[in-house]
Design a protein around this nucleic acid. Structure first.
Lengths: 364, 364
DNA sequence: CTTCATCACTAGAGCGCGCTAGTAGAGCGC
DNA sequence: GCGCTCTACTAGCGCGCTCTAGTGATGAAG
């Protein structure tokens, strides 16, 4: 049977798909040049006159030609694609993704997203990226084991955002967690807080460092006795659960909490607000990340800013440099965090319940 | 300078990247069969003995072979890839993405994610997907103009989730918005509410229908005089902004609010809780979507459930059917919404005075 | 015996592009 | 005329795979 491959004018063919996608050959024919020339033009390579260049673009536009990235990457054995592993529910990841797109584009790379979720583990998500010929991988707060990352790294450049892997040849971009935590604690202490608890981030990126830094900072301020790490996991759930725990303590409750991240802080805030406490009067709360949730006006969360844009920039540059063979040894970019004081921190209330027994060694 | 590129067998090549990726030919050679046979095995096509099949898989595993999807889609002119357009910040989209992955996989399709954001409009995101040879498109709550969608549809099967486009040959999967709204209003009325406001979703998916249904439902219950649509846009911001507006009204404040979606409800709740009001006593709140945010234990939001899993299933099936040529005319899948009553709805408190205990807890 | 179907496998032509090597023609100096 | 360079273009191979059209080997039917 004759198979009329519908082109510009439909030919009432079999119940097949829509129009055949135009190829470079179509453009070449219509523009009266060779296929190679069209290729030149689309790669923005030298060797075509301005007039021809324009004509080619015009014709391409007319017939709706769009370079086929599959063929392109096959032929060039360069895909110009970077894979991004993210957790789809994480707002800070969302922030970074938004920053990654423009940076990658500027460097001439496309971005492929692959989401990990409860039902789709990170390995699987990474596999999908590899199958699509990514040249490099940006892993957002990966929880993959070090050995797996090392294995990955043998295949392609990998950069981990928000988590540093020591001992293996993998680049990383993360914040100087300790510094951020120190700033947060210093801020709270300056406001007059002494009983400052920390909700831990569990196995989450940066959690271990934050925990450690919290303890150190508290000690530095002579608040050893107030050190209190509550278990958590960087989700709203853990924030609200810990809020319940704290509320149950009433008078013994800390006057400030450093949450494991913004999500955790939000969970906590919701419960605290709901219980009728004043923030920051009855409880000051500091988050971590400064994800877009934090600066919603009604939340107005004091938090430690991790610049997603800068993360993105460095990470993309990292991978691209590796691909260009500019660099050979692992690099660790440590970004300066910055405490952003908003509305959830303030002096502990003077008028309410006296939380601290005055005159037993605690300075005021 | 000599560049020892540590791989298994160094070939002192140019300062190139890591190990060459193994190809089908490598597997074939090592397994002592033809390339075509390996192809057969990996496509799970008939024509290979079980023994050979196993051997091929074993060898492939040994050398770390992974089919190259670029080459595959080029050769087959079937990419087996579906593109998903999402807004990376939208939690309901996150829910749907999570559901789409397994469903697509089961149908033998891969998923490519492309995120729209304030700095990357939907057109651009769609373009990226097209460049990657997606065979079909799932658009999550698209805000693209109808004409653009129609144009897209001429190139490939498209299904819109959460929004219906009338008059064009595009499939859609969405909830019977009116029904959900009716359930919500009926629930509130039954609890004794009369003054029920609605925060509008602006141009968001389903917003127009919900608005209309809200008005109709209120009228049905004889509450014409209480009809009140507050402007909004399905974000936390609009929820909190409207909460401020309502709080300022004190005694005149409605006793219940139907928010444009869950995010909006959350923004509203935060402000209301913070102001010291009791939910649901002083104000009942109903969301829309039942995104994962809604059932966080501390939020415990009454909301109208839109089943993301079912959305995903139908949408994928929709596109796949089109690709298989099973169907030819546009189809509209309307899903049953289901009111989920949780902790944010209850009878209104008897006296309006109760709602503002101290008389100056709220700034105006 | 021949014929034919079936099974297990192979040869080889593309898919749409990138890219190297090459060509035609113009311009220029001698 | 010659050779030379430079610009503007083209021919055609091959990236890693799929897929049609085969090939030989085996066994059953005639």
């Amino acid at each position: 049977m004759p198979e009329a491959q519908g082109d510009t004018e439909t030919t009432g063919g079999p119940p097949r798909r829509t129009d055949r996608r135009p190829t470079m050959t179509d453009v070449a024919q219509r523009a009266g040049v060779s296929r190679a020339l069209v290729s030149l033009v689309f790669r923005d390579a030298p060797g075509a006159s301005t007039a021809t260049r324009e004509r080619v673009f015009r014709v391409a536009d007319e017939i709706g030609y769009r370079p086929d990235s599959a063929a392109r990457m096959l032929a060039s054995s360069r895909s110009k694609v970077l894979g991004v592993l993210l957790t789809v529910r994480n707002p800070f990841h969302a922030d970074m993704v938004e920053s990654i797109y423009p940076v990658a584009e500027q460097r001439g790379y496309e971005i492929l997203l692959s989401a990990a979720s409860p039902t789709r583990d990170e390995c699987k998500a990474v596999d999908a990226l590899l199958g699509h010929r990514c040249e490099g991988l940006l892993l957002l707060g990966p929880t993959l084991p070090t050995s797996y990352i090392a294995e990955l790294r043998r295949k392609l450049p990998v950069v981990s955002l928000g988590r540093h892997f020591r001992g293996i040849d993998v680049d990383s971009v993360h914040t100087a967690e300790a510094k951020g935590v120190r700033q947060a604690i210093a801020h709270l202490v300056e406001l007059g807080h002494r009983s400052i608890a920390h909700i831990d981030g569990g196995r989450g990126p940066g959690a271990a460092e934050r925990r450690k830094a919290y303890r150190a900072a508290m000690r530095k301020h002579g608040l050893d006795d107030y050190i209190r790490v509550l278990p958590g996991d960087q989700t709203e759930e853990s924030g609200s659960a810990m809020a319940q725990v704290l509320l149950a303590e009433r008078e013994a409750m800390p006057t400030a909490v450093l949450a494991g991240n913004d999500r955790c802080a939000l969970g906590l805030l919701d419960v605290v607000w709901r219980a009728g406490l004043q923030v920051p009067g009855d409880l000051s709360v500091v988050g971590y990340d400064d994800s877009h949730l934090a600066h919603l006006s009604h939340i107005d969360l004091s938090t430690v800013r991790q610049d997603p844009n800068r993360h993105a920039e460095l990470a993309v540059q990292c991978v691209v440099d590796r691909l260009d063979g500019v660099r050979d040894e692992a690099e660790e970019f440590v970004l300066e965090p910055k405490l952003v004081t908003r509305g959830t921190t303030g002096p502990p209330s003077q008028s309410g319940i006296m939380r601290f027994p005055s005159g037993d060694g605690v300075e005021t």
